[in-house]
Design a protein around this nucleic acid. Structure first.
Lengths: 250, 250
DNA sequence: TAACATTTGTCTATTTTTTGGTCAATTGTT
DNA sequence: AACAATTGACCAAAAAATAGACAAATGTTA
């Protein structure tokens, strides 16, 4: 599974993995895609501009792109009106199921992690909320309700969650939420999941929004937990079936 | 304050900071020190060995060391029985108080972050605990009770918390706890704090341990929260005085 | 005191990575 | 058919990292 930190305790275990620039660039772009900052099909800026923006030479940007193309995140097309395009990834479909089952523990870890940081974020947002925060969250909630396809839903969903954590003003929590989401989205949307996955989510989001608006940290946190646990239940069922899911929820 | 991620939302904002190898090495060693993996005064392995362990040439390790010496984390002494030594850092003392007040928001963010991830860790540990986990946590708890100076207390405290999160088996949570603790310890132990800070902590740890042992996730989480909030209160008082602390706790 | 062992400090040559360009190939648009 | 925008491929120079040798410092021991 993508980017899992090593599992053993770090005590006494030095040994670094020095990341060359092109890897770091690839990681960053991959992460942006995972966080839903681009809808699929969207075109990135031309390589020269992008290299400029990132602050790296076109050559190293290129190496990063090669890797991302290889991983199936990007497709590059030469020619006028060509460019770098975000590729939607629900192709592998069923063939990926066994791979996902193999890495199931990791997915559960991500859910636990998301619950830890996103519930805290919701609670803090309920305490710290400002008028502009509420407006932004509310806007994201509306966008979610009006999304017309998987890609838009995903982008709107990501925006909703990320805006909430941004509203806490806590940069550490924000990074943690980003990490958790970036790590989860890719393995899960390999599927065609779309519909089953997104139904009901707008209501759950509204529930969270209400808690934050009311300044009720406990309610906001609980709504967030229920939202994420709900997603976990759905995914358990899709991967393991009804019986397997029940067995696995302990 | 050390290593704060950028505060603005990452949407649309690419621009990477490519970290050269020597910086990455410095970060890693600094982090290990911040996590209390060495007691102060302890000697690191000789540069040649250390470079070997880390997987980097002695030259770049050296660049990293220079930086850490500059930051006051290490002292290097040539000659036989010389070497690289961890320096205890409660020297700046009172002169640092204004700096800390300036960065107070950041410290509060760290506390919020710690509460989010460490409470979750305690709860999960209470569910997932194994005999060996319990034994390790219990051992760390004893070490804490028997620590004889600031440096030992700090190391034992770090070990206790890190072992708990390791017991969850969740690598993401573990990294998050490490991040939170690494970021906090340095700014805070610049002071002479020692005694006021450590009294009562062994009991609080025992309380957490009891919750985990009993398999009571709610109790473990609550005990952890009280433990961390208690530390926050103490530090608020030490930095702002009784009245200022009360004002700041909302 | 003199020789020794260990470890940091300094320097150099070599290899790898990154940069900053140039120019060709591709492909929509006019 | 000409044009414009973009990726693809290549190359020389600069920067970073490596590998190694040797000098300087400084306890320890004979």
């Amino acid at each position: 599974m993508a980017n899992a930190p090593e599992s053993k305790t770090s005590a006494g275990n030095l040994r670094i993995e020095k990341l060359p620039a092109y890897i770091q660039v690839a990681d960053q772009i991959r992460r942006a895609i995972q966080l839903g900052q681009y809808v699929s099909g969207e075109r990135l800026p031309p390589e020269v501009d992008l290299a400029q923006q990132i602050g790296v030479s076109r050559t190293t940007l290129r190496e990063a792109i090669c890797q991302l193309v290889g991983e199936g995140y990007l497709k590059s097309q030469p020619g006028a009106h060509g460019g770098l395009f975000i590729t939607q990834s629900n192709d592998g479909a069923e063939s990926e199921l066994s791979r996902l089952r193999l890495h199931w523990d990791d997915i559960e870890h991500f859910f636990d992690y998301r619950i830890a940081v996103e519930c805290a974020a919701a609670a803090l947002a309920a305490n710290h909320r400002s008028a502009t925060d509420l407006k932004a969250i509310s806007q994201a909630n509306d966008d979610m309700a009006h999304a017309e396809n998987h890609s838009e839903s995903r982008a709107a969903d990501a925006a909703f969650h990320l805006i909430i954590v941004a509203a806490t003003g806590n940069p550490y929590l924000r990074r943690a939420v980003e990490d958790a989401r970036a790590g989860m989205f890719r393995p899960l949307d390999v599927f065609g999941f779309v519909h089953e996955m997104w139904v009901g989510q707008p209501d759950e989001h509204t529930h969270i929004l209400d808690g934050i608006t009311a300044g009720d940290a406990t309610a906001a946190s609980a709504a967030m937990r229920e939202h994420i646990e709900g997603a976990r239940r759905k995914i358990r069922v899709m991967i393991w079936g009804e019986r397997g899911a029940a067995a696995r929820s302990r």
